[in-house]
């Protein structure tokens, strides 16, 4: 019984610790895709954001300056993607891969001097103060960026459903003809949505280098940005669902190590694959009867 409790607690802690980068990248991608464009470059933005945040925090001593710098770096790289994709006959998927490679390349190149030094990190908010159990206290020490991510998800959801800006983004993403008829600036909307989406992904990178695991090195992201892009499909382009999807992914990721510590040691490769198996199962279950891509913006290049 105690072992089950430990694993559950570890999964709770894991989901709070690991989910934030997934959340930010998937929210950013959600915004970009709602405008009818795909940005696979967010993996590169995540890595660049992590490096810029770490370097800025090290140079200025202020982790929040690092978070802001990461957002700006994301804004610029996303803006580049948005601007190039506005040109005629540019394929956004291929361009996204180029941006991904450029982002990681720039980050590795400029980040070289920051692998060794230790920067000032963000501090968690101790929501577990009521407990005497060190494990519970540690599990409930929550990074302010996580709360910011939840707030951003709620704000995005509200924005898409209740504000003029949000509805305009959705029109541009759902039907180019309708947008033209209404006289909406399609390219400008997509450019801004891509840039802002990447700014969010950049903040996700700041979480990686400034909170958890809290150090800059070249293997830091190991594909989390790409997984987050897939999470958007999983959460049906709904920002609130992005929260649940990220938490689930975080918890599933914590399953492998925590099972090994309580003595369930067989098949750890299988448990490490849990998040992916889980995604597959959910997609298969929800994809029956032509409902597969419900909620997908009509103008996405993969759907056209």
């Amino acid at each position: 019984m105690e072992a089950i409790g430990t694993v559950l607690l570890a999964m709770l802690a894991g989901s709070l610790r690991v989910s934030t980068p997934f959340l930010f990248v998937s929210l950013g991608e959600c915004l970009t895709e709602k405008s009818g464009r795909i940005n696979l470059g967010n993996e590169g933005v995540l890595v660049l954001g992590a490096m810029v945040a770490y370097a800025t925090s090290y140079e200025t001593g202020s982790p929040w300056a690092g978070v802001a710098a990461a957002a700006v770096a994301g804004l610029l790289l996303g803006g580049l993607h948005g601007a190039i994709c506005s040109l005629a006959r540019v394929n956004d998927v291929a361009m996204g891969i180029a941006i991904m490679l450029a982002g990681t390349g720039i980050a590795f190149f400029l980040g070289k001097p920051y692998v060794q030094p230790s920067a000032t990190l963000l501090t968690g908010i101790p929501f577990g103060f009521w407990s005497d159990n060190a494990q519970v206290r540690n599990a409930l020490s929550v990074c302010p960026l996580f709360l910011l991510g939840i707030a951003a998800a709620i704000a995005l959801h509200w924005c898409f459903n209740a504000t003029r800006v949000g509805l305009r983004v959705r029109i541009v993403g759902d039907s180019q003809d309708a947008a033209l008829a209404l006289g909406l600036p399609i390219d400008r909307t997509r450019f801004l949505a891509t840039a802002c989406g990447s700014a969010l992904a950049g903040i996700g990178g700041a979480f990686l280098s400034l909170y958890y695991p809290g150090s800059w090195n070249e293997g830091l992201s190991s594909g989390q940005g790409l997984m987050a892009v897939a999470l958007v499909v999983f959460s049906r382009w709904n920002p609130i669902n992005c929260i649940y999807a990220s938490l689930l992914f975080g918890a599933a990721g914590a399953l492998g190590p925590s099972l090994q510590t309580v003595g369930i040691t067989w098949g750890y490769y299988l448990f490490y694959a849990a998040p992916y198996i889980f995604t597959l199962v959910v997609l298969i279950i929800t994809a029956r009867g032509g409902r597969s891509l419900r909620g997908m913006p009509g103008q996405l290049s993969i759907g056209r």
Binding site: R17, N138, S222, S258, Y272
Partner: peptide
């Protein structure tokens, strides 16, 4: 704890936290 990879920072951090737990 086996992480399965030679370099996987997030998983290594997660493994350390699990052990401390």
């Amino acid at each position: 704890i086996f992480t399965g990879e030679w370099s996987m920072p997030v998983k290594e951090a997660e493994a350390t936290n699990s052990l401390i737990g």
